[in-house]
Amino acid sequence: MIRTIGMLSAFSSAIFFPWPMTACLALGMAIFEPWTPLAAGLIVEALYRPHAAGLPWFAAAGAAATAVAFFIRARLKTGIVER
């Protein structure tokens, strides 16, 4: 429930708050839901990116943050299993 609320807060902040706030919320939620930065990046691109523009920077940054989050979770998970 809390995770769902956190994710929805991160996504809705793309409309209500400046984009650095959206980025902070997405990165904070990445600990619990690694896909959150990628989803937030896609939502920001859908809302604000001019469609004739070049690389979708925010989706790319979200994908990178998601990859890092998965890597960190994998390391933590391994540590917990071995204990």
Binding site: W35, A39, A40, K77
Partner: peptide
């Protein structure tokens, strides 16, 4: 563990699918 997903399909994956559909 609070960090481990408790469902077969994670909420994050669903969120990415919805975001991609929005895009």
């Amino acid at each position: 563990n609070a960090l481990l997903p408790q469902q077969a399909v994670s909420r994050g994956a669903v969120a990415v699918a919805v975001a991609a559909a929005l895009y």
